[in-house]
Write a protein that binds this DNA or RNA. Structure first.
Lengths: 123, 123
DNA sequence: AAAATATTTAAGTATTTGCTTAAATACGTA
DNA sequence: TACGTATTTAAGCAAATACTTAAATATTTT
């Protein structure tokens, strides 16, 4: 991929484009981390898992499989992704693993939870 | 997929599980819409496009291709996804299409933009 | 130590995603 | 009308995703 500017519009402000590139460059780490978090939550099953953990405080894979009507391995694999992203942690009690959201949950996550609303407003 | 409860733990509170299911059910539309939005922003290229549009107000596909050092068709296909999700709109000026974020942008999107920060804090 | 339960991991597979290249469409200008 | 530029669309393909089933681990109970 060549690094040259291809836009030939008279209006194309090269200074603006270069400024955009340099800003993106300085935001690189943050953009990558943010898109990673969003890709985790950007799956309906995982979003439900996160939403449920926020609501119930902690749940085990078996509970989640029941609630979401999915197989335990399917749930477990989603959990692994969420855990690998550093969003949740497990607490063991016997054979059962209880997962819960980490305390340092991000503003984005909080804003996501706030925006999820029931379809009918209870009067 | 059977609808029966498989979790046999003594602690498994069936009332809690049923309550979770019913809450999820009432949030169904919202969860689907939210995960859709997050899946759009959960791709690094698209997140950059959104971030740039927020920063520069409006940009054309050609500018974005230059800034992101990607092919124009690749950018165009990302733009289509973002547009189909109702997040951006185009304004035509001659042959050039200027894309910009819709006015009614969600809290989640605003929170995403706020959380994207440069790596070095300017003192 | 063997059996039962909770969970994870691995292997296989169908679907989705994100690019590439080539062709089509839209608009302005010679 | 023909040509050039901006953009989109289509077709093709490699890689990633999300499930399935079967096997492996971990823990408790008998």
């Amino acid at each position: 991929m060549k690094l040259e500017i291809t836009c030939t519009r008279a209006e194309a402000n090269h200074k603006q484009l270069l400024n955009c590139m340099s800003t993106l460059n300085s935001m690189d780490v943050s953009l990558e981390k943010t898109s990673k978090l969003l890709s985790i939550a950007g799956n309906e099953v995982r979003l439900k898992i996160l939403f449920l953990l926020n609501m119930e405080n902690e749940l085990c894979p078996c509970d989640l499989a029941d609630i979401l009507k999915m197989s335990v391995p399917a749930i477990s694999q989603h959990i692994r992704k969420i855990k690998d992203a550093g969003i949740i942690t497990a607490r063991r009690e016997g054979q059962t693993l209880y997962y819960s959201l980490n305390e340092d949950k991000t503003d984005i996550l909080n804003s996501i939870f706030k925006s999820i609303k029931p379809k009918i407003k209870i009067a």
